[in-house]
């Protein structure tokens, strides 16, 4: 009891420094965020902006040298049929992949969140996490095995005497091709497979957060199961679907590996960027191409934020 009301300061530099920081919380916060701000805010954002600035330059068609003058001609080049096709192809693919992922993910998430118990719940957890955590390239490789002309899918269709169906699909214009592994259809399937867990997880989280009492309230108020689903559960799961779609859409827009390995050989935006900045050496056009997904995702995220999708992440 003999100790005073105020204890002496502890010796040493660290305690004194901490004392000082306690008294200057703003300074402490500043020190905490300083490294992030320096690296991400200055180096990363800086080089991002530097890259995007390049899109306002153009390349001299004869010498291949970048002209450092402001121009919109590089953006005009994006609208040339060959380039515009690339953008259109990528956006349509991203939209299709997103819709299909949502359709496939919903029953899985719904079952896992509301019905699966015990062993099944564990199986669903592993079934969703294993493909999510497995190596991206290994997954792509696995699909190369599946989709190969001599591979297991063809074999299954043969055994089921459904070759006419597979041939019919491959004979379709545009999406078909010589075999699944060199068709848009193949690219589409692999995109869905790779991004599907990113859709299931937020949807499942959104569904799990719906209190059971709410569904009971809906049926208590006279809603049929179909109505409860449509008017209560689905609207509450929607932010989860939107959150998932951010992933599926953005990841498809930016990917350049999958269409390179499984696909028809026609370019997607990511590949176009890679080719333009690499072999073609046209940095301004590469930069202009990168602006496209950024703008699309900016609009998309803004809309998703309005729908409250960020709370579901």
């Amino acid at each position: 009891m003999s100790a005073g009301a105020i204890l002496p300061a502890r010796g040493g530099l660290a305690p004194r420094l901490l004392d000082w920081m306690m008294r200057h919380p703003a300074m402490f916060t500043f020190l905490l965020v300083l490294p992030i701000v320096l690296w991400l805010g200055i180096v990363y954002i800086g080089s991002l902006i530097a890259l995007l600035m390049q899109s306002f330059f153009s390349i001299d068609e004869f010498s291949g040298v970048v002209k450092h003058e402001f121009t919109l001609s590089t953006y005009a080049e994006l609208l040339r049929p060959a380039n515009f096709d690339i953008i259109l192809r990528t956006v349509v693919m991203a939209a299709a992949v997103t819709l299909a992922s949502a359709a496939i993910a919903f029953p899985i998430a719904y079952y896992a969140a509301r019905y699966a118990k015990g062993k099944w719940k564990a199986l669903f957890y592993i079934g969703i996490m294993l493909p999510l955590w497995s190596s991206y390239l290994v997954k792509v490789y696995a699909w190369k095995l599946v989709l190969a002309k001599e591979g297991i899918l063809t074999w299954i269709f043969e055994k089921l005497h459904l070759m006419w169906l597979l041939d019919g699909l491959l004979a379709l214009p545009v999406v078909g091709g010589n075999s699944l592994s060199v068709s848009y259809l193949g690219t589409f399937i692999v995109f869905i497979y790779i991004w599907l867990p990113y859709m299931i997880i937020p949807v499942q989280a959104a569904l799990e957060r719906v209190p059971g009492a709410m569904m009971e309230a809906a049926s208590d108020l006279g809603a049929t199961p179909g109505q409860s689903f449509r008017m209560v559960l689905f609207p509450l799961a929607l932010p989860g679907i939107v959150a998932g779609s951010i992933f599926t859409f953005a990841l498809t827009l930016g990917d350049y590996i999958i269409p390179q390995i499984i696909g028809s050989g026609r370019l997607f935006i990511g590949q176009a960027v890679y080719v333009q900045q690499g072999t073609a050496g046209n940095i301004p056009l590469a930069a202009a191409f990168t602006v496209v997904p950024i703008v699309i995702m900016g609009v998309y995220l803004w809309g998703a934020r309005k729908m409250g999708a960020f709370d579901a992440l």
Partner: peptide
């Protein structure tokens, strides 16, 4: 006591 952090107050 002004300026003294909580852990140095008895």
């Amino acid at each position: 006591a002004a300026g003294v952090p909580p852990y140095r107050r008895n």
